[in-house]
């Protein structure tokens, strides 16, 4: 079912006069953006803002997974590795060197790049399911290492008493909104650029991409590096937000969190991760009152969604409302030049 519907989604709809019609319903996005920006004016409730902050962090984290898995086809079960390492690096820099979050978060992101490249290496050799299984083990290995050197890493307790992003929740909220918007914007730009075009070709068929002269090794490593960076800054942000980090961050659950968010929102769309993160983070809070049944309710909701809209919410909306999903931006150039094609 998903396959069949996915047919229509990315097709550029063409009007009779052969011009490409690119008609995003910008107004909806604009309305949501305004809501996001003015939300503290509606409610500055600490608890609600906190949930939204987590939704923003989750959006960046899920979108980073989507770049490798959904866009480039390098599906991993270990995304939390980048998030966690960057969190630890940010925490350590803050704790031992006293660096402020504004510095520790980007440096954590740089470590995400490094680890992304290291993780990327086996993905070049191991194909499909083999790599997925191996990727599942990475975070566990790391938390093992951390527990082995408690004098440096703080052992099970990890680091605590770190500097917060800001002592004011509204400021922290705006910082998270900025983080999310800028990250998603950059990721979307990458996906619609020539780099994203090549990423998608690797997802579709690596051998063919090689056969037409694409250095797939180089591009896959690039995808891992970018993914590692964005997962990393999300991890650094959350560490400062919580003012603590411990080895429990490396739990397998958290790798699946990225996958669930992206799948729900629409894999390969980047922007879907934002919707997925918001919906699931809020749902998670709503279900808090039935704590015992929460995991089950969560599963039920996911099953219902995947049964009825397996291509994810964003693709489903795109088809319903004729939103142009992101394609290669070269098409816009072609349209600007006017197609000098003969009419059939």
């Amino acid at each position: 079912m998903g396959r069949k519907l996915a047919n229509e989604d990315e097709s550029v709809r063409i009007t009779k006069d052969m011009k490409l019609k690119i008609a995003p319903k910008n107004s909806v996005f604009l309305a949501l953006l305004i809501l996001l920006i003015f939300f503290p004016a509606i409610s500055s409730d600490y608890y609600i803002l906190l949930i939204l902050i987590f939704a923003n962090i989750g959006a960046v984290y899920a979108a980073s997974w989507d770049l490798t898995a959904g866009v480039t086809g390098q599906f991993s079960f270990g995304q939390i590795l980048f998030f966690g390492i960057a969190g630890y690096v940010s925490g350590a820099l803050n704790l031992f060197l006293g660096l402020p979050p504004l510095l520790t978060i980007p440096i954590g992101g740089a470590f995400g790049v490094l680890v992304g490249l290291i993780v990327g290496l086996p993905s070049l050799r191991l194909k499909g399911p083999y790599f997925r299984i191996v990727s599942l083990t990475f975070p566990g290995i790391l938390s093992g290492i951390i527990l082995m050197y408690p004098e440096v890493t703080g052992g099970e307790a990890g680091f605590y008493g770190l500097s917060p992003i800001s002592s004011d929740i509204v400021t922290t909220y705006y910082a998270s909104v900025l983080l999310m918007l800028v990250s998603i914007f950059i990721l979307l730009r990458i996906v619609s650029s020539r780099i994203g075009l090549v990423f998608r070709s690797i997802r579709e068929n690596e051998d063919v991409a090689e056969a037409i002269g694409i250095n797939t090794t180089r591009y896959k490593l690039l995808a891992w590096a970018i993914s590692g960076f964005f997962a990393g800054i999300a991890g650094g942000f959350q560490t400062h937000q919580l003012m603590t980090i411990s080895p429990f961050v490396f739990g397998t659950v958290y790798s699946f969190q990225a996958i669930l968010y992206a799948l729900l929102g629409g894999i390969g769309t980047i922007i879907g991760s934002v919707g997925g993160s918001y919906l699931l983070t809020i749902l998670n809070e709503l279900l808090r009152c039935i704590a015992d049944l929460r995991a089950m309710m969560y599963a039920v909701v996911m099953i219902i969604v995947y049964l009825f809209i397996p291509m994810g919410i964003y693709r489903w909306l795109a088809i319903r409302f004729n939103i142009q999903l992101g394609t290669w931006d070269g098409l816009k150039k072609l349209r600007r030049k006017k197609l000098n094609a003969p009419n059939p």
């Binding site: 550029v12 090549v198 056969a211 290669w328």
Partner: peptide, 27 residues
């Protein structure tokens, strides 16, 4: 340059995108 015995289009990409990929080869 070669083609393959079984057709291998980049299925979820537009025809023009399929062709554009090769334009970003070093050659």
């Amino acid at each position: 340059v070669r083609t393959f015995q079984l057709v291998k289009p980049f299925k979820r990409m537009l025809a023009i995108e399929n062709v554009a990929v090769g334009c970003y080869s070093d050659r």
